[in-house]
Simulated scan of single mutants.
Amino acid sequence: MHELSVAMGIVKIAEDVVEKEKAKSVDLIELEIGTLAGIEFDSLDFVWESAVKNTVLEHAKKRINRIKAKARCVDCDTVFELQHLYDSCPECHSNFKGILKGKELRVKALEII
């Protein structure tokens, strides 16, 4: 379960921002996570409380924006949503595609106090 290390990395980012801005804590953290980022959202929720205990994020609200995956077919130029990385183009059934979005994993915003 790598979600714990991801959560701890998010804590580190928040702590660095709080230190840099000379704040006390974080009121809200907003994350953007793509559906192809390899994150199990339930697992991240499960480990979150343990990861943020006794940190600047302990009392922060967490908001996750899920980014739906999209790709562009290399053969017919169709843009389509993906459920899985191996999904083929719905128009020409080609497996050759470029991922446009869905692999994001970033801290979008922090509201600090």
Rank of each mutant, 00 (worst) to 15 (best):
R66N: 07
L100P: 00
L44D: 12
A23D: 08
E40C: 07
V18M: 06
M8I: 14
L100Y: 01
V74W: 10
C89I: 06
K103M: 13
E21F: 12
L82C: 04
V17P: 13
E15Y: 01
A7V: 08
I39V: 15
L110H: 01
V18R: 02
G98R: 15
I29S: 04
K24L: 14
D87K: 10
D45W: 12
E21N: 14
E104F: 10
S50C: 10
V79H: 03
D45H: 12
D42I: 10
L36P: 12
L4M: 15
E111W: 14
C89N: 05
L4A: 08
E3V: 02
L44P: 02
E91F: 02
A14I: 06
A71K: 11
M8L: 15
L31S: 06
K53F: 12
S50G: 14
G34S: 05
L110P: 03
K68D: 13
S25A: 14
G9V: 10
E49S: 12
L28M: 09
V18N: 04
I112H: 02
C73D: 04
V52T: 03
D27F: 02
E32C: 01
I67H: 02
H2P: 07
A71H: 10
G9F: 07
L85R: 02
G38I: 09
K20E: 15
G34P: 13
L110C: 01
E104W: 13
K62T: 11
I67E: 06
L44Q: 09
H2M: 07
G34R: 04
L4E: 05
S88Q: 13
D16A: 08
E104R: 10
E104D: 08
D42N: 15
A23C: 13
A71P: 09
T78L: 13
K70T: 13
S5F: 11
K101L: 06
M8P: 03
L31D: 13
L110R: 01
Q83A: 11
A69N: 12
L44C: 06
Y86Q: 11
L31H: 07
V47H: 06
C92M: 01
M1P: 05
R72Y: 00
C73Y: 04
G9A: 03
C76N: 06
I99W: 11
G9S: 13
H93M: 05
R72M: 09
T35A: 09
K24C: 07
L57N: 01
D16V: 05
N65L: 12
I64R: 03
D42C: 06
I64K: 03
E49Y: 07
S43W: 09
E32H: 02
E58T: 05
K61N: 15
H59E: 14
I29Q: 07
E58L: 04
R106P: 08
K61R: 15
M1V: 10
I29T: 05
I99M: 06
L100D: 03
A60H: 09
E111T: 15
L4G: 05
T78S: 12
H93R: 09
